Amino acid sequence: MVALDEGLRVSMINSAAEGLFEVSRRMALGVPLAEAVPHFAPHELRLKRSLDGSTGFIERETKLSRAGGNSVTVDLTVTPFVVGKRPGLLMEMLPVERHLRISRDELLQSQFGASRELIRGLAHEIKNPLGGIRGAAQLLEREFPDSQHREYTRVIIREADRLQNLVNRMLGPNRAPLKALLNIHEVLEHVRRLVQAEASPEVAVLRDYDPSIPEISVDREQIIQAVLNVLRNALQAVGTQGTITLRTRTRRQLTISGVRHKLAVQIDIEDSGPGVPPDMAEKIFYPMVTTRADGTGLGLPLSQYLVHSHGGIIEYRSRPGCTVFSIYLPIEVS
């Protein structure tokens, strides 16, 4: 992290940034950014516009380099702030190893596409035999109406219906989103009340909303389902005691799946649970993948599908004691 004052001079630099750019805090403080951290010299004009217009931005996989030094690739978030009456910028940089993995959006897109093809193939192979099994059980029930045989046929019909419902949930909704303008906080409050009713008294569901977020065009029921699935996962992660935080922020100039959006809403669902196991990190959005004995592994894939259908994406970061799932949804600016 690097903070800049109204003259684009370094007012704060943390140890991680010192190590990343091989600079000294003592030598950088009070010095113009382009001199203190030469990697940012080509970006000085963009930062000046951001400061003058009080508009932040996010750049994915930004390559920063300096003459005679190594280049670094980072996800860069620039946020304006005001202290007293003096404006400034806060720059947050997350290093990205370009040569070790494809971009996060492309990775999630490939996971999503593979999952959908797998689900469709499975559904086709399962649904027709299920219908035949259920029909045969109904015929047997009519043929042998006595209570002893009815008990067996009822079990067959009930289990066939359960599997049919499971397949339908895997496929997700079979309609396009019916979008309408709404306040995203009304949706979040509805979901929060549902989950709070299910939660232990020792689980706190906190709110940190940005009231300036404009109305967003989404399918209310589909977004409720997407958020509810993620929030219930957070509730299961904390168990009977812990904290869950719902947070909203706006993001400017955000690129999602290769499309740049002037404005987007970021919905964070943060929990204090044990975190995502390392062996699950790369496949958490795959269907039928779960860490719970009674789980179906369909909640996150379905949420990702619903958010994708709105032009958005779900990402996450996790460590023991803090897991954050972030839902990004474009805001249509007229």
Rank of each mutant, 00 (worst) to 15 (best):
L4P: 07
D5H: 00
G19L: 09
M27G: 02
G30I: 09
G30H: 11
P32F: 06
P38E: 06
P38K: 05
E44D: 10
E44L: 15
L47S: 02
L47Q: 03
K48H: 10
R49P: 03
D52A: 15
E59R: 09
E59A: 14
R60K: 15
A67W: 05
G68D: 07
N70D: 15
N70P: 10
V74R: 11
V78T: 09
T79M: 11
T79W: 03
F81L: 08
R86M: 11
G88K: 09
E97C: 12
R98A: 11
R101L: 11
D105P: 04
L107S: 13
L108C: 02
L108N: 08
F112K: 06
G113I: 02
A114C: 07
L118R: 11
I119Q: 01
R120I: 11
E125T: 12
I126A: 13
I126W: 05
K127V: 13
R134Q: 07
G135A: 13
A137M: 08
P145F: 04
D146A: 10
Q148C: 03
R150I: 08
R150C: 03
R154I: 01
R158Q: 14
A160Q: 03
L166I: 03
V167P: 10
N168E: 15
M170S: 15
R175D: 04
P177D: 07
P177T: 10
L182C: 13
E186N: 11
V187T: 03
R192A: 07
R193N: 12
A197M: 05
A199G: 06
D208I: 00
Y209F: 15
S212R: 12
V218D: 01
A226E: 06
N229A: 09
R232D: 07
A237L: 01
V238D: 12
G239E: 09
T240K: 14
Q241P: 00
G242C: 07
G242M: 09
T243L: 09
T250D: 06
Q253L: 08
R260W: 00
L263S: 04
V265C: 00
I269K: 05
E270Q: 14
P274A: 15
P277I: 07
M280S: 14
E282K: 13
F285C: 09
V289T: 12
R292E: 14
A293M: 11
D294P: 00
T296Q: 04
T296Y: 01
L298H: 04
L300F: 12
L300I: 05
L302Y: 00
L306G: 06
L306M: 08
H308C: 02
S309N: 14
H310S: 10
G311Q: 03
G312L: 04
I314M: 04
I314C: 02
S318Y: 01
S318H: 03
P320L: 02
P320T: 05
P320A: 06
T323H: 11
I331S: 00
